[in-house]
C-alpha cells in the first residue's frame, strides 16, 4: 500500500507540474515537453488502475505521435520563440479565467469530497472486468462486439481527418508570395541595369537586400490579407 501511495503521489506531482508547465512556460517546445511529462504521468496512473493497453496506447499515440506532431509543426514553422505572457489578450480575460478555474475546481472538489470514498453508480454486469482475463482481451472483446459500430465510425473519422490534413497543408500555388522574392532573371537584371542611369546601385544587391526581412514580409502579407 505504501508503495502504491508513493507511486501515486509522485506521479500526481509529475502530472501537475507538467500541466502547470504547459500553461506557464513561454517556449512552445518546453510546453510540449511538459505535456509529455503529464501524459507519462497519466500513463502510469492508467497502469496503476489496470488499464495496460491504454497506457501503452497513451505513450504510443500521445507521446509518440501527437506531441511529435506538435514539435514538428513548431520546428517547421519556426515559432519556437518565447511568447510574451505579459500582455492580456482581452481586458480582464485572465482574472476571469482564474475565477472560472477556481469555480470549476471548487465545485468538483466539493462534489467529490462530500461523498467521501464512495463512487456512486452501478457496478457493471455486462462488461465486467474479469480478474482472470487479460485487460487487452477484455477491451478487445467489447470493442469488436458492443462498440463495433463506433469503432468503424472512428476509422471513417480518421480517414476524413487525414484527407483533411493533406488538403489543408498542401502547398497552394500562392503559398509563397512571389512579389516578396524579386527573382529577377539575369536578362531582366541586365536590362534593368542598362536602363538605370545609376550603374553603381547594382541590381543584384537589390535582390539580396529585399528578400526575407521578416518584418517586411509580415507587413506585405498582412496587407494582402486585408
Amino acid at each position: 500500500m505504501r508503495v502504491e501511495m508513493f507511486t501515486f503521489l509522485l506521479t500526481a506531482a509529475i502530472c501537475l507540474a507538467g500541466s502547470a508547465g504547459v500553461v506557464l512556460l513561454r517556449n512552445p517546445v518546453h510546453n510540449a515537453l511538459s505535456l509529455v511529462a503529464t501524459l507519462f504521468g497519466v500513463a502510469v496512473l492508467f497502469i496503476q488502475q489496470g488499464a495496460y493497453f491504454l497506457a501503452a496506447i497513451q505513450v504510443i499515440v500521445y507521446a509518440g505521435a501527437i506531441v511529435i506532431l506538435f514539435l514538428f509543426v513548431i520546428m517547421l514553422l519556426g515559432v519556437d520563440k518565447a511568447e510574451g505572457l505579459d500582455r492580456d489578450p482581452i481586458l480582464g480575460q485572465r482574472p476571469a479565467a482564474i475565477a472560472a478555474a477556481v469555480a470549476i475546481l471548487g465545485l468538483s472538489l466539493t462534489a467529490l469530497l462530500s461523498v467521501g470514498s464512495r463512487v456512486t453508480g452501478q457496478a457493471s454486469t455486462l462488461a465486467a472486468i474479469d480478474g482472470s482475463e487479460p485487460n487487452i482481451n477484455a477491451l478487445a472483446k467489447v470493442l469488436f462486439t458492443d462498440y463495433v459500430f463506433a469503432f468503424e465510425i472512428t476509422s471513417v473519422l480518421l480517414t476524413v481527418a487525414v484527407v483533411g490534413a493533406v488538403v489543408l497543408s498542401r502547398k497552394a500555388g500562392s503559398a509563397i508570395d512571389v512579389a516578396e522574392f524579386p527573382e529577377g532573371t539575369t536578362a531582366d537584371l541586365l536590362q534593368a541595369k542598362h536602363d538605370a542611369a545609376a550603374v553603381e546601385e547594382d541590381v543584384p544587391e537589390e535582390v539580396a537586400t529585399e528578400d526575407e526581412t521578416p518584418e517586411g514580409e509580415a507587413e506585405t502579407t498582412e496587407e494582402a490579407l486585408r
Partner: peptide, 25 residues
C-alpha cells in the same frame, strides 16, 4: 476500475482516436 466496467476503457480508446484526428486537422 471502480465499477469494474471495461466500457470506461473502451471510451478512453475512442477519445484518444478522436483526439488524434482533432490534432491532425
Amino acid at each position: 476500475k471502480a465499477l469494474d466496467d471495461i466500457a470506461g476503457q473502451a471510451i478512453v480508446f475512442f477519445v484518444m482516436v478522436v483526439a488524434a484526428a482533432e490534432v491532425v486537422v
